[in-house]
Design a protein around this nucleic acid. Structure first.
Lengths: 141, 141
DNA sequence: CTCGCTGCAAAAAATTTGCACATTG
DNA sequence: CAATGTGCAAATTTTTTGCAGCGAG
């Protein structure tokens, strides 16, 4: 699981401690197929015989989102591990309404077009948050 | 307030009853400058000497979102009245991080570009949800 | 060793459910 | 008056706060 190692490196590099709870949450996120809520995470850990206080999980997720190690999926109401690292352009998601799976992507050209649209309306856009709803390749015949 | 009348027409046309509570919530939404939560709405009505049960407000907002008479702003966590009617293209928002105000817009060309991006990734996008964060014209000097 | 992090207890806030009663068309 | 919608009570779920004590660096 190289992804988890990358995240751990980010934590260390930014001066945050690499604690047992943080590693546990990272692992759950990395293994999850779909967005998970704080209580989902607690339950998953419990099934492995591990216990984390839910408050701790909330705080860890806050931190991960701050560092872009995870993202909150607003349409589905859960958290996912970031799969793009620091790829340029805002990180976005395509959510499959059939299987509930999602794919993260970034597209710098799209960001630029959005900035222009915003500018035409007198708005200076600093971040584009977006999620597409539809059907993924596995789910449409 | 022509907007409220339009919404009332939509309700009637779709076979929903035009009740006192629904009209009250519509009015609050129409007069609000920023997204309002169910409890915000209850409080605003209370200040006018009116009372609605919060459960009723939840249900009314659910209906309004279903009919696209209102939208839930995910970044800020509240509801706003739709200002675009049935304008073509997904309805989106620009949120000002300074004043908290927002502007709704739709752009068919943007929808099409997003569909192409999705298609390139094997995804069939049916709806694009997006919110831009930035600074509005009033707030940047 | 010491600062940052976690656990715990508790409260506050947000959301949901079922059923009896009221209101709209 | 018949179906829809609302109010109420209560439970559940989600999120936040403050403080004491633990543990990574």
């Amino acid at each position: 699981m190289p992804e988890v190692q990358d995240s751990i490196r980010v934590l260390r590099a930014r001066g945050y401690k690499v604690t047992q709870p943080r590693k546990q949450v990272l692992k759950v996120l990395a293994e999850a197929e779909k967005p998970v809520s704080p209580y989902d995470i607690q339950k998953i850990l419990q099934e492995k015989g591990q216990h984390l206080n839910h408050v701790t999980i909330y705080r860890i997720l806050d931190l991960f989102c701050l560092l872009d190690l995870a993202h909150r999926i607003l349409l589905l109401g859960g958290f996912v591990k970031c799969t793009l690292g620091d790829k340029e352009g805002c990180h976005r998601f395509m959510v499959c309404r059939h299987c509930g799976g999602l794919q993260e992507f970034a597209d710098k050209a799209l960001c630029e077009e959005e900035n222009e649209i915003a500018q035409d309306l007198g708005f200076c856009a600093e971040h584009h948050f977006s999620e597409f709803f539809g059907v993924c390749s596995k789910c449409h015949g």
